[in-house]
């Protein structure tokens, strides 16, 4: 069962929980994964998002999210103007992703410090979202928990090293999944935790020497 505040709630900017609130959360999550203010974003829209985005304000919600606005922030209505004022260079284009979830958006982003990342996700109903890809990794991330994302080589012992770091910092793992392209190649580990992930935890993960990169994405 879901919670009381999924039924009476969430507080949100209308008109649609999937096409507006979910879209805002998706943008917010994509921005958090980029980890720095967005300078440029090309947003590819699939399915219902591509067909109906204007009528639901989906474009405003996606950009509002990228600007860091929560789904209940009334500035969403003016997000496109605010983005232009802040120099966020955005564009929208349709994309056919086959049988992907009908409310899917893919963010091709560049940050103000030059970081580039592509994040894809779906608004899966009731304002809930799932990030389904980061760059070429097919993943699953809901944004309901603080998350640790680790990029590493697929080999024995990496998971233990990282979980040791978390244990040392008294961080409890709620959910954990590992994704890889092929055996022995680059892999991605996503760990959702009950506690916040501080910068020193991320540094300790990097100091293990067994990973390529680690970054934290806060719950949204």
């Amino acid at each position: 069962m879901r919670g009381v505040f999924d039924i009476v709630g969430p507080i949100m900017i209308g008109p649609s929980s999937s096409h507006t609130a979910g879209a805002a959360r998706l943008g917010l999550m994509a921005g958090k994964i980029l980890g720095e203010p967005v300078a440029k974003a090309e947003i590819l829209l699939h399915g219902s998002f591509a067909r109906t985005y204007r009528g639901h304000g989906t474009d405003k919600a996606l950009i509002g999210g990228l600007l860091g606005f929560s789904p209940e922030d009334e500035r969403i209505r003016d997000a496109l103007e605010i983005a232009r004022e802040r120099g966020l260079d955005y564009s929208f284009a349709p994309i056919d992703l086959g049988d992907a979830h009908p409310n899917t958006a893919v963010f091709v982003m560049t940050g103000v410090n030059g970081r580039q990342i592509t994040v894809g996700g779906a608004s899966i109903g009731g304002g809930n979202i799932e990030v389904r890809s980061i760059d070429t990794f097919q993943i699953a991330l809901t944004g309901q928990y603080p998350s640790l994302i680790v990029v590493h080589r697929d080999k024995p012992g990496v998971i233990r090293e990282i979980s040791d770091v978390l244990a040392k910092h008294h961080v409890n793992i709620a959910f954990m999944r590992v994704f890889r392209r092929n055996r022995g190649q680059q892999a991605m580990m996503i760990i959702e935790t009950d506690e916040e992930l501080t910068e020193d935890i991320i540094q300790d993960c990097r100091s293990t020497g067994v990973i390529e990169n680690a970054f934290a994405v806060p719950a949204i």
């Binding site: 009476v8 949100m12 008109p15 507006t20 209505r77």
Partner: peptide, 21 residues
């Protein structure tokens, strides 16, 4: 109507039915 003009509402249980409760 507030929902339709991109105003702030409480989904209850959904945005489409937010005025009833």
């Amino acid at each position: 109507e507030v929902n339709a003009v991109m105003g702030r509402i409480v989904a209850c249980p959904t945005a489409g039915s937010c005025g009833i409760v």
